[in-house]
Amino acid sequence: MAGFVLKLSRQAAGLTQEKFAELLGVDPTTVQGWESGRRPLAAIGAGELLKLGARLSRAGAPASTGRHLGEAIEADLVLATGITAGDSWVDPDHHPLAAAVHRRTLTNLITWPFTGSTPPQLGEFIPKVPRRGPVTTRPLLHVDERTRFLDHLVHVTERAGYASEPLLRRQAVYLLGFDRRAHVVDWLRDEWHRVGRRTIPGDDVTGLLEARSASVALAATGEGEHIHDFVSRMSDRDEVANLNYWAYWIGELGDVRTDDSFMRDVDTRSWSGSVLLAHLSNRLDPTTPHLPLNLHTLHALVASRPELLDGRPRLRASLTESLDRLASGDSLTRTGRDQVAGLRYALRIFGR
């Protein structure tokens, strides 16, 4: 990941590999090695990485280049750990999936080789140098590397204790949602029946999130009934945990967390909700398998903080258009139509 992000940032600065090497005072083969992954960027050390990001930004790359490179190295560490271990166990004290709660930007980088979708946060890297020949649009993993990484996730979910290593297991479950192998889909279905069909105790946020991950993953395979079931079973405390999770996921809740316990915090004033409102408003596509969860979360956010709609005429107009499109289609359940009606009513109040 880091090598590919370095390539994007170099191109955004308008530098060829040769010019970049000259700027750094290194041989062009060193730059080629970094970008291809043959020379891991993590090996140059944190200080040198900071300098590298700063040099690129001064040359014309986005100011956020250093942050993107650092996050890509984190993604490389997750992938390398799984690929190296395969179906072997890694002590949780040394496993990156057990170190901190992941955000959307990091997860997008980890799953990039599997989805083929460029992480949205990298959209600011606009190339300014002509491309030569066929262009690779994403980092690539060999088939055996992909298999070893995914097999490692399966091993983690089977070995990690639900109570003893909740974060490690939960984040492995989430990443398994990007594994389309039939036996893994079967495993996710069993996982849903284990955690999604039972009443989750009020303090068991990990159980809630594992049920969420399984239902979201199964929805992507075409089994949409599970995500509807998950949404319908959420209690008031689950609603709060879901909102806190989303706020952290998109970066609105700033501090890095090392476990999931913060999601049960009933005082949500540590985040404003404005970024989450915009994020969810842009995710009401009738064709997305995750629409029930996105719509439900948006409805819960506006119900708890209706003042977020005040003073945002452009967002209200865009949201009104999205809701009108949903209301005119046939993708909504009765609950979904009630939620759309509630949101439209709130928009009318603040549109007066």
Rank of each mutant, 00 (worst) to 15 (best):
P113G: 08
P113A: 10
P113N: 07
F114D: 03
F114G: 05
F114P: 11
T115I: 08
T115L: 06
T115K: 00
G116D: 05
G116V: 11
S117T: 14
S117L: 10
S117I: 15
T118M: 09
T118E: 15
T118Q: 10
T118I: 07
P119G: 08
P119H: 01
P119D: 00
P119F: 01
P119R: 01
P119L: 03
P120G: 01
P120D: 12
P120Y: 01
L122H: 03
L122A: 12
E124M: 11
F125H: 09
F125D: 04
F125W: 03
I126V: 15
I126W: 04
K128M: 10
V129R: 06
P130L: 04
P130Y: 01
R131M: 11
R131C: 07
R131I: 09
R131P: 02
G133T: 10
G133E: 04
P134Y: 01
P134V: 09
P134G: 00
V135A: 12
V135S: 11
V135C: 01
T136C: 05
T137H: 11
T137D: 11
T137E: 11
R138V: 01
R138H: 10
R138S: 14
P139T: 09
P139D: 08
L140A: 10
L140Q: 14
L140M: 10
L140T: 15
L141C: 09
D144Y: 13
D144M: 04
E145L: 07
E145N: 08
R146F: 00
R146W: 00
R146K: 11
R146C: 09
T147A: 15
R148P: 01
R148V: 06
